[in-house]
Design a protein around this nucleic acid. Structure first.
Lengths: 183, 183
DNA sequence: AATAATGCTGAACAAGATGTATGGTATTGT
DNA sequence: ACAATACCATACATCTTGTTCAGCATTATT
């Protein structure tokens, strides 16, 4: 990819994230984004068809990073799945999300909550084989499989939202424990 | 309240609900609403300051109706809390929501999901004294009270969403049971 | 039945947002 | 050095929002 393209793409992402921390998704205009990114109007639309596509791309980017360990690149520093037991997977996940400061919270606000949940469910479904067994002891046999996955994903998102909205006072271990206790 | 006011207010609500069943909240414009309601532009803004206030008023209206039994008017036909056991309360709630066809689903889509959840939590908190004990056996003591209420509300909303998105094939009793089994 | 009050209409309006088009300039990869 | 292409600035048509106002219709009051 052209270096210029990468630069503007990152500028847009940074501007978008910066605005999300001060405002909400639906209040942000394309005009504000291009002003913060300091780019031309036409340039923005050359990169993203619309504001919603930008949001989608940002979600994709974040999840690709958080779940990167599950695709290639198995020699990187610390992988989310280099865990001795499956419980620490979610602790790592919470730690990752905490480290992202409030970028995630902004994505969890009404507007984009559905999108976020959708992405998370998709990723979670990919881990179903290896990780879902952790929760199987809780699952009543009459509950459909997809209902159960929906429930786990929704519980995770809700836990995360509660955590951040309350100032992330708990440690990742604690909040992961909350998650396990409630799911 | 003036008869004219009631008429236009209902016309706006009906138009809004009608549009919500064909489109999504953020795609709907005030222009579409006043066209569907067949009223003047100024009239709309005389009733609702903005589109978001309309949404809020609609939520209020729906919840007031669903939870009406808990406030006055205790001689009406069937009350949501005229139940022998607390379990049937939620069955009734699901039945109510089912009867509302898809109006609720439209309110559960991304945009308004947060608002809906907020309202439901508020109502749920009002029932905390009488109904929360049903779930107390599941609650781990180390979980904070407000975390637990958040969890129940989110689980309810998620259950409802899954139900409607899958065509409400299950009976209210069944889906209430799903809810109890997962919370 | 007459009157005052209040709500609705319809049209016009400014302000602002969206998405597109274009000709010119600067940067990139080869 | 050269061709390709990404960027810029501006302008533009279109749509949306929220406000204003004069005139008409309905309501409640007496």
């Amino acid at each position: 990819m052209d270096r210029r393209q990468r630069k503007t793409r990152n500028a847009i992402f940074d501007a978008f994230i910066g605005l999300l921390s001060k405002s909400t998704y639906d209040k942000i205009t394309v005009g504000q984004i291009i002003a913060a990114a300091d780019i031309g109007r036409a340039t923005f639309y050359a990169h993203f068809e619309t504001k919603e596509y930008l949001l989608k791309a940002l979600c994709q980017e974040l999840f690709d990073h958080i779940f990167e360990a599950d695709r290639g690149d198995h020699n990187a520093h610390t992988h989310i799945f280099d865990c001795d037991n499956t419980a620490t997977v979610f602790t790592h996940l919470f730690r990752h999300l905490q480290h992202n400061d409030n970028h995630i919270l902004d994505l969890l606000s009404c507007q984009s909550n559905g999108l976020f949940l959708e992405y998370f469910k998709k990723e979670l479904a990919r881990l179903a084989q290896s990780q879902l067994s952790v929760f199987s002891h809780r699952k009543a046999p009459e509950l459909p499989e997809d209902f159960w996955i929906d429930h786990i994903a929704a519980t995770f998102v809700q836990t995360l939202r509660w955590w951040i909205e309350n100032g992330t006072k708990e440690s990742p271990e604690e909040i992961a424990n909350y998650f396990f206790l409630s799911v």
